[in-house]
Design a protein around this nucleic acid. Structure first.
Lengths: 214, 214
DNA sequence: TCAAAAGTGTTCTATCTACACCCATGT
DNA sequence: ACATGGGTGTAGATAGAACACTTTTGA
């Protein structure tokens, strides 16, 4: 019998933001083997000194500089890379791009990539991202998770653009407004935003910034 | 700095069956510390020589003797027990009670317990089971996963009883039949079952025994 | 006064819910 | 013939989808 090393545990995080009216994901450049030179999801070894969720949150804050973000576990995969036995616990996160400050020190800094135009990815990160996108799309329908993607105050148009970017389909303005208000996902703040030569837009906030099922 | 041991990885399985018109879960008795004497979900260390899913499936077959079962990953928890750092990857499974042969050799053999009347459980297995029940309930509505709980052929009444046992609510016979047939989840086999002094019941099968979304 | 985005209601359609009677069989 | 569970259709309510014009502003 050969000596068995204990399998390693890692966390990886799919970080989403809406940028240029598109759903984008944060990728880092691998500067060392394995899979050197490819883009990959941020992640790292877990040493057991925190909970998994705390480790994922720490990674997220490390990459984005932002706090109070939406973070949810996706699934756990074994043997994502063939180098050594282990599990990777995948999370996904939703961040407001305006609250993010990426690290820029390295030669290849982390960068946003549209989910519909991903570069070649390390390991099987394509599948992880695909699952994450599917989960977010599904949850848009029956939860308020969009709060993770938007600032404290926003116009209905901005909220609808976020939905459309994620779902990849156009939505009817009137029906969208009706649903958001009837389900009490959002409420008007009373303030308006003046932007350009047209009627000012009412500003809204999420009635709750905790996850809520509709 | 203290020496860090690599965190351990374990799989645990919530095995469901419909027994006596109730949703029941398979528990094993802990004969050694920690949590000695309590009931717990079956599970064990993962050594990395297989995929996680294979390890969970092996545990399931080991406990039930049945194959071709429905198995799905639930979530991964860290630090479920306080003894050593580690992660537990939880799965849930749906089995047809008629296909199960439990091990009976031990003094305290594995046993079925109704999910609405669980004994004191080791670790935080209550939470794991609660999550599994919630997942199964939700998926009954928009998938065909009930195929995991039923034999090849069954009457509509048996299928409905399974749904009612899981959801904990009564369903309308006519609407239930309509939905099952319209969505093509099941189809009549042409055979009937004679049971007692009344009209024989048509037998049905699932149109697919692979997971399908409706 | 014009351009540009914000704001607003109604009709139609599809889906879900509620509900009661006849049918086939064994004893 | 009777008791038992199996089988079936319709009407009302609800939720979702489609759709066009008026308002407010800055230039």
């Amino acid at each position: 019998m050969s000596e068995q090393r204990e399998p390693v545990t890692a966390t990886i995080v799919v970080i989403f933001a809406i940028i240029d009216d598109a759903l984008q994901v944060l990728l880092v450049h691998r500067s060392a083997p394995p899979e050197q030179g490819l883009w990959a999801l941020p992640g790292g070894r877990w040493d057991g000194s925190t909970t998994l969720e705390e480790a994922a949150a720490a990674k997220l804050i490390d990459e984005t500089g932002a706090r109070d973000l939406y973070l949810e576990q996706l699934f756990t995969a074994s043997n994502l890379d063939a180098v050594q036995a282990g599990v990777a616990v995948a999370y996904f996160a939703l961040v407001d791009e305006q609250a993010v400050r990426l690290r820029t020190s390295q030669e290849w800094p982390p960068a946003w990539h549209r989910v519909d135009a991903l570069p070649p990815l390390a390991f099987r990160n394509n599948e992880v991202i695909a699952q994450a996108v599917a989960r977010v799309r599904a949850k848009l329908d029956y939860t308020n998770i969009a709060f993770g993607l938007l600032p404290e105050q926003f116009t209905l148009r901005e909220l609808q653009s976020a939905y459309e970017a994620i779902l990849g389909t156009a939505l009817d303005r009137r029906n969208f407004r009706k649903r958001m208000l009837q389900t009490e996902v959002i409420e008007p703040t009373g303030e308006v935003r003046r932007m350009g030569a047209h009627r000012p837009a009412q500003l809204y906030r999420f009635t709750s910034r905790e996850p809520v099922f509709l």
